[in-house]
Amino acid sequence: MALLEVRDVHVAMGAQEILRGISLEVPERAIVAVLGGNGVGKTTLMRAISGIYGIKSGEIRFDGREIGNAKSHEIVRLGLAQAPEGRQIFGTMTVRENLQLGGIAIPPGETAALLDKSLELFPVLKARLTQKAGSLSGGEQQMLCIARALMAKPKLLLLDEPSLGLAPKVVKLIFDLVKRIRDEGATILIVEQNAKAALKVADTAYVVEGGKIAVSGPAADLARDQRVIDAYLGGHAKGH
């Protein structure tokens, strides 16, 4: 049984249906990518999984439990954390406070060890612990955002466009870290516009169009799929 199973999920905002029957599976210790153009519903899906939005119908099972309409704070406690779109860090608070808040859902006794572990993965943050998070560079903020999510000791880590707006070198660094986080035992569901980079690290991938899954399969196959190449890889990614 997969760690996360999303079955025929519908999400509506007012009268507008944004997710129209999405299904996907994230097996334990896998990296699963969700691709798709702007406004197709990727972030809505991530928010529905994290309990930020309620779902209209369908089911979301995490670690054997139905979480389709659980509250966001309950879901974090079950071991599902997200580095959300736009980072959503606490800009007026210090880097250390941001990380402490990342661990707010776990017992206080465990946070010190987790903080050490996060800082080991993201050494740039170490020198900046007392700095206001809002004064970090874009790349540093993204690292803080991921480190903050890791403070919740997640079994499943959701990443919503972690490479957005970052220089290629930083993008590579982030994807290397994603692999490392998986290798250390977490499972990852990642939304990306940078399909090329995402397909390189992912095991499986799903392409969303109009609130539904249009294509899915092993990442290596998708990287060779002509429709995916035309739509998301700029039409000239053969040979990868």
Binding site: V76, A81, F90, G91, T92, L101, G102, I104, P108, A149
Partner: peptide
Amino acid sequence: TRVGLSIRAVSNNVLGARHVGIDT
């Protein structure tokens, strides 16, 4: 304290607060 940190976090960024697992 955790309550105080949560209050400041919700004041600063509600969505961020919900993502870290604060009961707003």
